[in-house]
Computed example of a mutant assay.
Amino acid sequence: MTDSGLLPPDNVETVFRRLSEAMPGRSERAKGPKGQPDAFRSCISCMLSAQSLDSNTAKASRALFALAQTPTGMLALSDAEIIDAIRPAGLYNNKARAIRRFCRQLLDEHDGVVPDTRKGLLAMHGIGRKCADIVLSFTFGHDAIAVDTHVGRVCRRIGLARGPTEAKIAEVLDERAPGWAKEEGHFWLIQLGKRICKSRRPQCGRCPVGDLCQYHAGEGASDG
């Protein structure tokens, strides 16, 4: 381990090399967030996905985009129309307000065009680090490892990156991951989390990086 309690750089490189061989990367079916075809709808869908099941997010997205597909069209809707459409995603009052503020900011500051940089996306109302990285990777094709629940858990257990929030983990991971791994690293890590490094019953004996993993070695890595 390093002084920070994380894997040393050489081991980080080895982890990603092994995962690149053992886990599937970006597939042809991988689309923008929640399958949306453009950056605007990708951002809105990401906002709707907070604390929502994928199936409920999909229902809310379909209903909302049946009414409007641009920031101008969205702002022309009444609060009641937006809330009724996105109700399946939960937290609909807060999300409706966030959507309105996002659309207004997009028009006022960017002529309705979604920024294609992390800094630009993070400056938008309602867009956090995970959403920004997902939009960058899936919609704009930039190299970014988005950190969700699965990726965060894997990073903490292995010792790739840690932090009090997924956003902090993403920040640390971006600094430590080799450049060549950032294009598909999200896919390798999320598949490891879903298939092997599960939350309740991790299958350490099947893990391609088990001999490097701090959780498996019992070195006190945070479980989560």
Rank of each mutant, 00 (worst) to 15 (best):
R104S: 12
L64E: 08
A217R: 15
V209A: 03
T117G: 06
A98D: 13
I82H: 06
K194G: 13
N94A: 13
E81N: 10
E219R: 15
A96V: 04
A22S: 12
R162H: 13
S222Q: 15
A39I: 08
K168R: 15
D54I: 11
Q203R: 14
R162C: 04
G185D: 07
S20P: 01
L19N: 00
T149D: 07
G210K: 14
P202L: 06
A76T: 05
E219S: 10
K31P: 00
G205V: 04
G25Q: 11
D3W: 02
A177H: 03
S222F: 13
P9E: 08
A63Y: 07
V151P: 02
N94S: 15
R157K: 07
L48N: 04
I158P: 08
K95I: 11
A50D: 00
A58L: 14
V113K: 14
A89R: 05
H142T: 13
L107S: 08
F138Q: 12
K31E: 12
S45Y: 02
P178T: 12
K198I: 06
H142K: 15
A80R: 12
Q105M: 06
R104N: 05
G120T: 06
W188G: 06
G179R: 14
S20C: 03
V172K: 11
E166D: 13
D108G: 09
S42L: 03
K182V: 05
A66C: 02
S4N: 08
P164E: 15
L7W: 06
I83H: 01
G205K: 00
A177R: 01
R206V: 01
G159M: 10
L7I: 04
S52E: 05
W180V: 08
A181Q: 14
L64S: 10
V15M: 00
M23F: 01
R87V: 01
V209P: 05
A22P: 08
H142S: 11
A132T: 10
G32E: 04
D108Y: 05
A76E: 14
Q36G: 02
P37C: 02
R26D: 00
G220C: 06
K59Y: 12
F138K: 09
S78E: 11
G193V: 01
G5C: 00
T165L: 10
V147N: 05
C46F: 07
G128K: 03
D174H: 15
D38P: 05
G25P: 05
C103V: 07
S199E: 13
S4F: 03
S78W: 08
G35F: 10
D211P: 07
F138C: 10
S20I: 04
A170V: 10
K130C: 06
D79A: 12
G193Q: 06
N11R: 14
V209T: 03
F40Q: 07
G120D: 02
T2D: 14
G210T: 10
P88E: 03
M47G: 02
S78L: 01
D84R: 15
T70V: 07
P208D: 01
R206S: 06
K168G: 03
C155T: 07
R97S: 15
P33I: 13
R29M: 13
E81T: 08
G90L: 07
Y215W: 11
G185A: 10
S55E: 14
D143V: 00
G35R: 12
D84F: 01
D116F: 12
Y215H: 14
A167F: 09
I44V: 15
D211C: 09
T139C: 12
A60F: 09
P208G: 00
G193I: 01
R153C: 09
A96E: 02
L64C: 09
